[in-house]
């Protein structure tokens, strides 16, 4: 048994296990922290910056999905500053590629859309980008629209860590980063893809989806953690 760690989150004393992340400790105690690139069951990425928290004594902000708890730590998951920054993060993601909810397959079951509503993002302070990536419809069951991708890398991580294939990865860098299949192959021609569909189940937005299926059935965020749980139980 790892030793118990005591810390405070939003003024509440909580007990966590050694090595546990702040996010996990918060969740276990019913404290909500917004997340986006985080996916239970796979490794943490720490890229979207939605789950940032303040830790007393440090001017820095910490991604709670990846920062381990420490004895006596005083965590703040909500503040004026954090709300302001989370709003910026969502706005910038919405502006980065042409996210138009009304014509998106994920409309209504999109995590980015949900966060925008939740954080009060009602307009964008920066101009939108109108990227023009080709939509990949070559796979018989799935589709990939890079114009809707927010580069959270959940798909990459489930493909690598759960399915064990690593068909997906990132190409190029910065704003030109793109999730690709194999060495930038069309999905339908990917040699390594097992067509398991976990990537589309993990996608928080409408970038990877099952053709012709209702989104509520496709976006199964819990699927991955369910698989991981069953595996670790054995």
């Amino acid at each position: 048994m790892s030793k118990p760690i005591e810390l405070t989150i939003d003024g509440r004393k909580v007990v966590a296990e050694e090595g546990e992340t702040i996010l996990k400790a918060a969740k276990k105690n019913g404290i909500y922290v917004p997340t986006l690139c985080y996916l239970e069951g796979v490794s943490s990425f720490g890229g979207c910056r939605l789950c940032m928290v303040e830790i007393k004594g440090s001017p820095r902000l910490f991604a709670s999905c990846i920062t381990p708890v420490a004895e006596g730590m005083e965590v703040l998951t909500d503040s004026e500053r954090l709300r302001r920054y989370r709003k910026w993060a969502v706005e910038l993601l919405l502006a980065e590629r042409p996210h138009v909810c009304s014509v998106c397959v994920a409309n209504g079951s999109c995590e980015l859309q949900q966060l925008a509503t939740e954080l009060g993002v009602d307009h964008l302070r920066v101009d939108r980008e109108w990227t023009d990536y080709e939509v990949d419809l070559t796979h018989e069951r799935f589709a990939y629209d890079p114009n809707r991708c927010i580069l959270c890398t959940r798909c990459i991580r489930v493909c690598d860590e759960v399915e064990g294939v690593h068909t997906l990865d990132l190409m190029l860098r910065g704003k030109n980063s793109k999730v690709v299949f194999d060495l930038d192959e069309n999905w339908g021609f990917s040699q390594s893809c097992t067509s398991c569909g976990k990537c589309s189940a993990a996608c928080p937005v409408g970038a990877l989806y099952v053709k012709g299926k209702p989104l509520s059935e496709v976006k199964k965020k819990d699927l991955v953690s369910f698989i991981m749980e069953r595996r670790s139980g054995k």
């Binding site: 910056r49 993060a89 980065e96 920066v126 190029l172 860098r173 980063s177």
Partner: peptide, 22 residues
Amino acid sequence: CVDESCGKCTPCRAGLHKLFKI
């Protein structure tokens, strides 16, 4: 810095690009 951002985190990837545009 826009060119050299790795693209992992939102502020650097998307934020710097917007800053450059402005």
